[in-house]
Design a protein around this nucleic acid. Structure first.
Lengths: 187, 187
DNA sequence: GTCTATAGAGTGATAGAC
DNA sequence: GTCTATCACTCTATAGAC
């Protein structure tokens, strides 16, 4: 693998695990097996490399999610599929994690890909919910934008509860609780 | 205010804003208007001071939540009250934020108060939901532990979405979406 | 493209005077 | 209890040789 690629992937991993503030250029170089000069030759510094890594992680998140959204089935089935997909729960969300990082939130070029990723996710979920309304799965009282935000929030919050408990259990509980509520709404 | 108290409160603020990794003893001393020697006289170091600050924040969270849970009204009313309480959405949750901090999660004495706080919160919410089942507000299909986790997750995830968007809106959407689902379940 | 040397600032703590 | 001095280390680069 080329150096640039190794640098980006190592940065993705470190941002996931330790966040932006907790990730040093030196740690990235070690993980990517690249020298100091090499890293600064390809990137202007930590921020630009982080930006590339965050954008990459955002793309990967969208691809993985779209796989469930575009699959056949009713709206509830596709949402349930998405919610129940295999996840590394205790590692949390690579993108959501960054919202806790003050330096990421303070830098518009770093926050932008985070913002775009969740905007896309909520929009896509809203489309699926809207389809469910058209097919009569969900009653008129269900608002697609609200429900989409609720679904995305349960996942992000589920990660938080799981990490606090050092167990997948609260995540699974939260997801199943949401699925039940969605079923009750469509019943 | 005494020095110890100023140190704890300043640490609470800094942990909320910058997390554990992003908070230095020096920054705490500056915020608390305390000297180096003073801080190390009262606390063994950053970790012990953080522990005191996290425990304090956990107590405050429980007190604030209990105010809504113990108020009169139906289960749905009390849950709605809790969800719609005034919050500093863009600052996020003081406790939930710490789950993104690898050094907090790795240290059992720092993770413990985070764990306990969310365990209490989910347990208390589950009690309210269980009451709602007894009074016939919720059908038998609703599981208190699952629903409690879902409610806590929507708040924690709502903060994440709000910070990503740099706007309260996604938080409000997620909360209203959950309230609608709870109403549909009880209808 | 990659290497090593250097640098100024900050980190987290200890020591001992007052 | 609080102060200043000091320390070994890390952080995030920059400079210039190869």
């Amino acid at each position: 693998m080329e150096t640039v690629e190794r640098l980006i992937r190592s940065t993705q991993e470190l941002l996931w695990e330790r966040g932006y503030v907790g990730t040093s250029p030196k740690a990235i170089q070690r993980a990517a097996d690249a020298g100091q000069g090499s890293m600064y030759h390809h990137f202007s510094g930590k921020a630009q490399l982080a930006r590339a890594a965050i954008e990459r992680s955002g793309e990967e998140l969208r691809e993985a999610a779209e796989e469930q959204f575009a699959s056949p089935g009713t709206a509830t089935e596709r949402i349930t599929h998405y919610l129940e997909r295999d996840r590394e729960v205790l590692r949390g969300c690579r993108i959501g994690r960054l919202t806790a990082d003050p330096d990421v939130m303070a830098d518009p070029t770093l926050r932008a890909p985070v913002d775009e990723t969740f905007r896309w996710l909520r929009g896509r979920l809203a489309e699926v919910v809207a389809e469910g309304k058209r097919t009569g799965e969900y009653p008129a009282t269900i608002d697609p934008d609200q429900t989409a935000a609720t679904i995305a929030a349960v996942l992000q919050g589920g990660y938080v509860l799981a990490r606090a408990a050092n167990s997948d259990e609260p995540f699974e509980l939260a997801v199943q609780g949401l699925i039940t509520l969605l079923q009750e709404a469509s019943a």
